[in-house]
C-alpha cells in the first residue's frame, strides 16, 4: 500500500524509544489488533468445523465424546433413512416460501414507491414484521390458526370456505408454517426491494413515459431488469434463510404432524439434543451444508446469466 514510506519515517521520529524496539512494535502491532477476533473465530468456528467432521465418523456417548469409530456409516445411514424425507420437506418449504415471498415483497415495494402523499407511513407499516421475532410471530399465528376459535378460519367461513386444521392436518401444516414464515420475512423483502427501486434512475421512467409505456410495460421492461441484482440477491439469501428455518417449526408444529414439517435443521436438533446422537447429527449437519453449497452454486450459475448489471 502507498503509505508505507511515510509510516517508516513516522516510526523513526519517535526518538524516545530505541530503534529496534519501535520496529518490533511496528511489526507486532497489527497482529494485536487481529488477535481477539482471530482467537474467538478459532475457538468458536474453526475448531467446531474440524470437531464436527471428526464427530461425524464416530458413535458418541451422551456426553458427546467419540466412542466407536464407524467411518462413513452415519453418512450412508442418512442417505438411506428418513434424512432424505426431511430433505424433501426442506426443499418443499423453500419452494413454498421463497418465490411467493419475493413476489409479495416486490408488489408491496412497487405499491409503496408510487409518488403519493403518506407513502412514508405505509413504508413503516409494510416493514413492521421486521420487528417481530420468529418466536413472537409464530405464537401469535398459533392463536390465529386455531381450528376452532381462530380468526383465520372465521374469516374463511365468512366467504363460505370450510375450516382448515392448519397445524394438525399433515397436508396443511407445511404450507401453514410457510405462510407464517413468508409474513415474518416480508418486511425484510419489502425493505430490500424498496431501496432497490429508489436507486433506479428517474430518467429511465420518464423516457419510458414519453414512449408511451404503461405501468406494466414499464415494470416488466425497465424496473425488473434494473433491480434484477437485488432480486437475485434476495433469492439467494432467501433460500439460505428458508433452509435454516427453526423457531417457527419448533413453536408451531414441533416437526409434526407425522413428520410433515420435520425439516433437516429441526431433525438435526432432535437427533443431537433429544436423542443425544451427536455423531449422527454432525454427519447430517455436514450433508446439509454440502446441499446448501451446491444449491447456492446452481443459483449463481442460473442467476448470473439473467441478472442485468449496470
Amino acid at each position: 500500500m502507498a503509505g508505507q514510506p511515510a509510516r517508516a519515517t513516522a516510526a523513526r521520529t519517535r526518538v524516545s524509544s530505541p530503534k529496534w524496539r519501535a520496529r518490533w512494535a511496528e511489526r507486532v502491532e497489527p497482529y494485536l489488533y487481529i488477535a481477539p477476533s482471530l482467537a474467538l473465530l478459532i475457538i468458536f468456528t474453526f475448531y467446531p468445523i474440524v470437531r464436527s467432521l471428526y464427530l461425524s465418523l464416530f458413535l458418541t456417548n451422551p456426553l458427546g465424546e467419540p466412542r466407536v469409530f464407524v467411518g462413513l456409516e452415519h453418512y450412508a445411514n442418512a442417505l438411506t433413512t428418513t434424512f432424505l424425507k426431511s430433505m424433501g420437506v426442506t426443499l418443499l418449504f423453500v419452494l413454498y416460501t421463497v418465490p411467493v415471498g419475493l413476489l409479495l415483497g416486490l408488489a408491496l415495494a412497487l405499491l409503496a414507491h408510487q409518488p403519493l402523499k403518506g407513502t412514508r407511513f405505509f413504508q413503516l407499516v409494510f416493514s413492521s414484521p421486521l420487528a417481530i421475532s420468529a418466536a413472537i410471530g409464530s405464537t401469535i399465528w398459533v392463536m390465529m390458526l386455531n381450528p376452532v376459535s381462530g380468526i383465520v378460519n372465521y374469516l374463511l367461513s365468512l366467504v363460505g370456505l370450510s375450516p382448515v386444521r392448519w397445524l394438525t392436518d399433515p397436508s396443511w401444516a407445511l404450507p401453514a408454517v410457510g405462510m407464517v414464515s413468508i409474513w415474518l420475512r416480508l418486511g425484510f423483502n419489502f425493505v430490500l426491494m424498496l431501496s432497490a427501486l429508489q436507486n433506479v434512475p428517474e430518467e429511465l421512467h420518464e423516457a419510458a413515459m414519453v414512449d408511451g409505456a404503461g405501468f406494466w410495460a414499464k415494470t416488466r421492461h425497465i424496473t425488473v431488469p434494473m433491480i434484477s441484482p437485488t432480486l437475485f440477491f434476495a433469492a439467494v439469501v432467501g433460500v439460505i434463510h428458508a433452509f435454516q428455518v427453526f423457531a417457527e417449526i419448533d413453536i408451531m408444529t414441533a416437526g409434526g404432524p407425522s413428520d410433515a414439517t420435520n425439516t433437516v435443521v429441526y431433525r438435526i436438533y432432535q437427533v443431537a439434543f433429544r436423542q443425544y446422537e451427536f455423531g449422527s447429527a454432525s454427519a447430517q449437519a455436514i450433508l446439509l451444508f454440502i446441499v446448501m453449497v451446491i444449491l447456492t452454486y446452481i443459483q449463481f450459475r442460473l442467476g448470473e446469466r439473467r441478472v442485468h448489471y449496470q
Binding site: 468458536f44 468456528t45 467446531p48 464436527s52 438435526i268
Partner: peptide, 29 residues
C-alpha cells in the same frame, strides 16, 4: 503485515459456514 492476504481469506471463509455445522461442538464446548 506478513500473511495479511491469507488471514483475510481465512476470516472471509468463515462467512460461508452455516451455524448448524458449528452448533454441536460449540454446545459441547
Amino acid at each position: 503485515f506478513r500473511g495479511k492476504a491469507a488471514l483475510f481469506a481465512l476470516f472471509m471463509s468463515t462467512m460461508m459456514v452455516p451455524w448448524e455445522v458449528t452448533l454441536i461442538p460449540n454446545y459441547l464446548t
